[in-house]
Every structure is written in structure tokens, then in C-alpha cells.
């Protein structure tokens, strides 16, 4: 480090006399070959310590029987890997994660599109619609789960209470294996769709007005303008939103953990919760790390495939 600080100093000394020419000749390329590194260094330090290092260390854990409770650590080869790859509960949690993704992505793309179309057309309600549709996005996850858990309460909640008023017996919501995942997906859509909605809204409002005006002169009605102009011009935005939502949905954990704790009967336990359960409840760090790596690889494959697909569309 100290060696580096010496390096630029001699260069600036002669340079300062001829500061102007130096700036003219070589404005952006290497004012000094080390300067850029100094700017990048703080980020790299944090990056190395809190991301790369844990990633490397975690990989090392996968070959040991290290426990969060302490005790002797011994090398056990690929045991953790074979255990996580043959564990039926691991595949169940992978399926739950995938099921959540399959349910939530189309819902949260279409809902966002519909809300943005409403906002784009009902201009006079603009601020009210933006407030109402986006506000849930800024809620802490626990606020969301407290409120929805209360509304979903089978005997005392708003939903079944209101249904009961009409003589309908409502479902068990979060307390039944059949409905728990759907309930979580609905709550998640309410909470997180606001971001997709804003992306759509911004894209719609950047469509030039004269395109619509020209179509209106040609006699195109409101629905035709949506179908022939708005939607085709939003293809890229839709792809972007779908990619972001897919990656986001695959990483689901917090709201499900808080609402159902993975239940009933593990029907909603996601991969990240299984990793958490294995590491922080079962205390088996090695096993949890190998699961984390299996999942990380799957996510990276999904992300890269999506970005490939997306950039091809773009080009």
C-alpha cells in the first residue's frame, strides 16, 4: 500500500508544471495507472471481505462436518453434497420455490400492466392511484405479514368474516396445505407489485404522444390504441419486468417464513428457509452450505439464461 502512494507522487511533480498539456493529451486514459485503482479499492475491500470471502469459506465448509455449536471439525469429503442432492426434503423445498415462482411471476406482471394502464388513462386520479398501488412496496415485510396474517385469520379475520356475512364458509387460508401457497402469493403480489407497476408506468409515459394522436386521427379507439401501440411498444419492458420478477421470486423466503414458517406440513418451505433451518436450527453449517451452493448454481443458471434470452430480444 505504501509503495503505491509513492508511485504517483513523482509523476505529479513534473506534471504539475505542465498540467494543461497533460490534460489535453490524455484526458480520460491513465492520468496515472494507479489513480483508478484507488477509487475502486474501498468497494473492492468490502466486496472481498463480505461477499467473496464468505463465498470461498462457505465452499470450504461443504466438505466438513462443521457445526454452529462448535466442536471438532473434520473433513468428510462429498458427504454433504450427496446428502443435499439426494434429500427428498431438499427437492420438496425446491419445488415449493418453483411453484411460488410459477404462480407469482405471471400474476405480478399482468397486475402491474393492468394497474399501469389504468393510471395512464385515468390521468386525473394519477397521484391517488400511484399512492395506493405503490405504497405497499415500502412496507417492511413484517408489517405486511402482520396485516395479512390478521386478515387471513380463519375464524376472526376480515376475509372469512365478510364471507360469513353472506353465509359462505371461507377457506383456512394459511392453515391448509391446499390454500397456503396461494394465500402467500396473493399477499406477496399486493406487497411487491408496485415496483413492476412503476416500471410499466414509466415506460408507458415515455411513448410519444403524437403516436397516439396520429392513431386517434385515423379513427383508432381506446382499446385499439392499447392493443396496437401501447402493448407492442412495451415488449422490452415486459421482458425486463419478467426477468427481474423471476429472479426475485426464486429468492423468496421472508414473507413465507413469517406467515407460515414453511407450513403447514412443510407445504410452503422454500429453499432458503431449508438452508436457514439446516444451518441455524439444525446447526449443520456444512450441510447448509452445500445446499446454498446447489441453490446458488441454479439461480445463476436461471439468471444467465434469462439475460441471454432478454438481450437477444433486445438486439
Amino acid at each position: 500500500m505504501t509503495q503505491n502512494t509513492d508511485a504517483p507522487a513523482p509523476r505529479t511533480a513534473p506534471g504539475s508544471a505542465t498540467a494543461a498539456p497533460r490534460g489535453l493529451v490524455d484526458v480520460r486514459r491513465r492520468p496515472s495507472s494507479w489513480t483508478g485503482l484507488w477509487f475502486v479499492l474501498p468497494f473492492l475491500a468490502f466486496y472481498a471481505l463480505f461477499l467473496l470471502w464468505p463465498a470461498v469459506v462457505g465452499f470450504g465448509y461443504t466438505f466438513t462436518d462443521r457445526s454452529l455449536a462448535g466442536g471438532d471439525i473434520s473433513f468428510i469429503g462429498l458427504d454433504n453434497w450427496s446428502e443435499s442432492l439426494t434429500d427428498a426434503a431438499m427437492y420438496d423445498s425446491l419445488w415449493n420455490t418453483l411453484w411460488f415462482t410459477i404462480l407469482s411471476v405471471p400474476l405480478m406482471v399482468l397486475l402491474a400492466l393492468g394497474m399501469a394502464l389504468l393510471t395512464d388513462h385515468a390521468r386525473r386520479l394519477g397521484w391517488f392511484l400511484r399512492l395506493s398501488f405503490f405504497a405497499p412496496f415500502v412496507l417492511p415485510v413484517t408489517v405486511m405479514t402482520l396485516i395479512w396474517g390478521w386478515m387471513y385469520n380463519p375464524s376472526l379475520g376480515l376475509f372469512n368474516g365478510t364471507l360469513g356475512r353472506f353465509g359462505i364458509e371461507g377457506p383456512e387460508w394459511l392453515f391448509s396445505e391446499d390454500t397456503a401457497m396461494f394465500s402467500v402469493v396473493i399477499a406477496t403480489a399486493w406487497w411487491q407489485v408496485g415496483f413492476n407497476y412503476l416500471l410499466y408506468l414509466a415506460a408507458m409515459q415515455s411513448i410519444p404522444k403524437d403516436v397516439y394522436e396520429a392513431a386517434a386521427i385515423d379513427g383508432a379507439g381506446a382499446w385499439q390504441r392499447i392493443g396496437r401501440i401501447t402493448l407492442p411498444m412495451l415488449t422490452r419492458t415486459t421482458a425486463l419486468i419478467a426477468v427481474l420478477q423471476l429472479i426475485g421470486s426464486l429468492r423468496v423466503f421472508e414473507q413465507i417464513y413469517l406467515m407460515t414458517n414453511g407450513g403447514p406440513n412443510f407445504a410452503t418451505r422454500t429453499v432458503i428457509q431449508y438452508i436457514y433451518d439446516s444451518g441455524f436450527v439444525g446447526l449443520r453449517i456444512g450441510l447448509a452450505s452445500s445446499m446454498a451452493y446447489v441453490f446458488m448454481v441454479l439461480i445463476i443458471i436461471a439468471s444467465v439464461a434469462q439475460f441471454r434470452l432478454f438481450s437477444r430480444k433486445e438486439g
Binding site: 467473496l52 464468505p54 463465498a55 439461480i299 445463476i300 444467465v304
Partner: peptide
Amino acid sequence: FDFRGRPALFALVIGGILIPPQTLIV
């Protein structure tokens, strides 16, 4: 700025976007 290793370092940083932080909790 252009400095030695810049493309590799930038690629390393960008690669980090793909890592879900939740998988590093342990």
C-alpha cells in the same frame, strides 16, 4: 480510468450481481 486489471475487476464486480446474498448467510 484505465488501470491494470480493470476489465477483470469489473467483470468480478458484475459477476457479484448474480450471487444471491441469502445463500451466504451461514
